[in-house]
């Protein structure tokens, strides 16, 4: 039995908890949240033990899963790594490059299993696209466009709205696409970006990022927390012998529309992509199996570092108006 401790019991903590509950060889031994009330409610709902302190949680598990807001990742990851725990940490690896460096150093020093949770790599549409590009399905890649976003994410503490905590739409949201691009196309030479992040518009953030890859390809990412039309993603990979495209608004396996009870409209449309296992399960299952077998997780701490470094370069470009070389 692999014992897991989950830290940070918001949306992502729940998502991960649901995944662990399906694994017969995993026990969530303890959970921790710096809001004691939220921890208690969570523990009651899932029937798990609350750790009053971090050290108490570390005593009860081999695997630590960090689902806190970005700016607190290092604060929990470092002691867990130093205690020799296997750590899976939500993306982005950390809010600052200094924190990322500390985590990379700690992982190297203590030689513990570590995985930044870039879950996009486990979304079947993105995984299939990665495999196809790698297999040469579109030939030499020339141009890539990716789009991600919807309306502004709202939480009780509203930490997404605090740039110093979340890093805005570039560090929090399109880091998914940045990691996928680094994974699929390799080294980025330079980045140029525009963003609303520094305009101090309440609950609006938007970015358009251009990347030049070492292999000559040009990439474009749109990240939005400005679109009231709901969360959407799409991508398009053009190469010298073909193109792959995906659009979450078009490739919809199940679409439901319901009428309000009184028949007066105000209905809700919910598109879904049902699957036997969701990407969060696949991601965490991969990490648990790596911990159990001693294999190296397919997303390394360096991958986490590189994604943050690229995101911060894009932020720097948006802030200064200059091209940022990597």
């Amino acid at each position: 039995m692999t014992r897991v401790g989950v830290i940070g019991l918001g949306t992502m903590g729940r998502q991960h908890m649901d995944a662990y509950r399906q694994m017969l060889d995993v026990e969530v031994a303890a959970v921790y949240d710096h809001h004691p009330d939220r921890a208690q409610a969570f523990a009651q709902e899932y029937g798990v033990r609350v750790a009053g302190r971090l050290s108490e949680l570390l005593d009860q598990c081999e695997v630590v899963d960090i689902c806190t807001p970005t700016y607190r990742h290092a604060e929990y990851a470092l002691p867990a790594i130093e205690a020799g725990k296997a750590v899976v940490c939500e993306k982005p690896l950390a809010r600052t490059l200094e924190d990322c460096e500390r985590i990379v150093e700690a992982v190297k020093k203590h030689n513990t299993p570590f995985m930044p949770a870039h879950v996009l790599r486990f979304f079947p549409e993105y995984r299939t696209a990665h495999q196809l590009v790698k297999s040469g399905a579109v030939g030499v890649v020339a141009a890539v466009r990716m789009r991600r976003g919807g309306d502004f994410p709202r939480t009780k503490s509203d930490w997404y709205a605090d740039f110093n905590k979340s890093g805005g739409v570039i560090l929090d949201l399109i880091i998914h696409d940045l990691d996928w691009l680094l994974w699929t196309l390799g080294t980025v030479e330079r980045v140029y970006a525009k963003a609303l992040t520094f305009r101090n518009l309440e609950h609006l953030d938007y970015t358009l990022v251009t990347l030049k890859f070492k292999n000559g390809a040009v990439g474009h990412i749109e990240g939005t927390w400005c679109d009231p039309g709901g969360f959407k993603v799409n991508f398009e990979i053009c190469g010298d012998s073909g193109m792959l495209e995906y659009d979450s608004t078009r490739q919809v396996a199940l679409q439901m529309a319901t009428r309000a009870e009184d028949g007066a409209g105000g209905g809700v449309q919910v598109p879904e992509s049902p699957a036997v296992q969701n990407p969060y399960y696949l991601e965490l299952r991969h990490f648990i199996e790596c911990v159990q077998t001693g294999q190296t997780p397919e997303i390394t701490v360096e991958d986490g570092y590189n994604a943050v470094r690229l995101a911060l370069a894009a932020i720097e470009s948006a802030q200064t108006g200059r091209v940022v070389a990597l």
């Binding site: 141009a143 358009l208 251009t210 000559g216 040009v218 474009h220 053009c238």
Partner: peptide, 23 residues
């Protein structure tokens, strides 16, 4: 205007890929 160009589509002596950022 800021622009990135490339020629990975046709590998010729002309830009076949172009991405402009404008203010």
């Amino acid at each position: 205007v800021y622009a990135e160009t490339g020629n990975n589509m046709f590998h010729g002596a002309f830009d076949d890929t172009a991405m402009l950022t404008m203010t």
